[in-house]
Amino acid sequence: MPLWQELPLLLIVAFCLAVLIRTFLVQAFFIPSGSMEETLLVGDRVLVNKVLYDVREPQRGEIVVFEGPPNWAPENQIDKDAGFFAELGRTVGDLVGFSQPGEKDFIKRVIGLPGDTVACCDVQGRVTVNGYPLDESSYVYEDSPLDATPNPRQCTARRFDPVKVEPGQMFVMGDHRGVSQDSRCQGQVPIDNVIGRAFVILWPSSRWGWLSVPETFKNVPKNAAAPAAPGPRITRAPQIPLTPDFFVAPLAASAMVSTRSARQQRLRRRRW
């Protein structure tokens, strides 16, 4: 095929591959707020594994992306008065990963699983899970004050009454406890709302690193009323506009390189 025909075809193939990767395998998520500082900063991009939780449930200490329940207040505001072309651009961006996350997209750390009892605080001001105090010094940033009065609508206080995590739910909290609005005041999150696990900081390059599970969670005892292991989970359709903006450019560049290589090979054959 001539170059002017081959190049658009390869770009279309690259676009389709990017959409497939975004939909079923891995996506990049843009951090819109400071609720996970200093683990994740505003503007960071993290890769999210979408396949992992189709074969197992989330684990304590993992950082997950999920769709917020209806009662959760949005962290990321979207301009609803944007014009037609802005909406069209956002829709196209959702397909290939160049848009901002939606209003109901959240990223938090899993603290409690079904059957767990989560509370705060022990005599040293620490969060406990099934009576075990968590050592959160490695990831918690600007914890809420101990002497603040608990508010059921605002997570402004460190103390909260013991919460028994219900079946099919999880208890999540942000690492920046002073500003994070999470399960302390907004309630538990259905596990089925989870989109995937954030496992690496992809951008900026100076902050590249793995998002591992802190050691303290490995010592949490199992709860006495832990439910039986569920069966295989049904694969969910994508629910939030995550952003795989690092897949399209490399694929497009690869397509251009392949086109040039094929062109050079044809020229060599003609010379012979």
Rank of each mutant, 00 (worst) to 15 (best):
C155F: 04
L10S: 15
P114G: 01
G83N: 05
V194K: 13
S144Y: 02
R45K: 15
S254I: 10
G93N: 05
G115L: 05
V65G: 00
G93Y: 06
R260L: 14
Q239R: 09
R90W: 13
V92Y: 08
G112D: 01
A253R: 15
H176D: 03
L20E: 11
I240S: 09
P70Q: 07
A18Q: 10
F171V: 10
D135N: 13
E6W: 15
Q59H: 06
R22W: 12
Q188Y: 06
A14L: 04
F246K: 03
R60Q: 12
V140G: 03
A119Q: 08
G178R: 11
G168V: 05
I111F: 00
P152E: 11
K104I: 12
Q27Y: 11
E136N: 07
W72H: 13
R159T: 06
C121W: 02
P167H: 06
P145A: 09
Q77F: 06
A82H: 11
S137V: 14
A253K: 09
I107W: 00
P58D: 00
N223S: 15
P2L: 02
S261P: 01
A73H: 08
P190K: 07
N130E: 03
C155M: 04
F217V: 02
A225G: 14
V46A: 10
F171Y: 14
L3F: 09
P221E: 05
I111Y: 00
P32D: 02
H176G: 03
A225P: 06
E136R: 04
K108E: 00
N193Y: 04
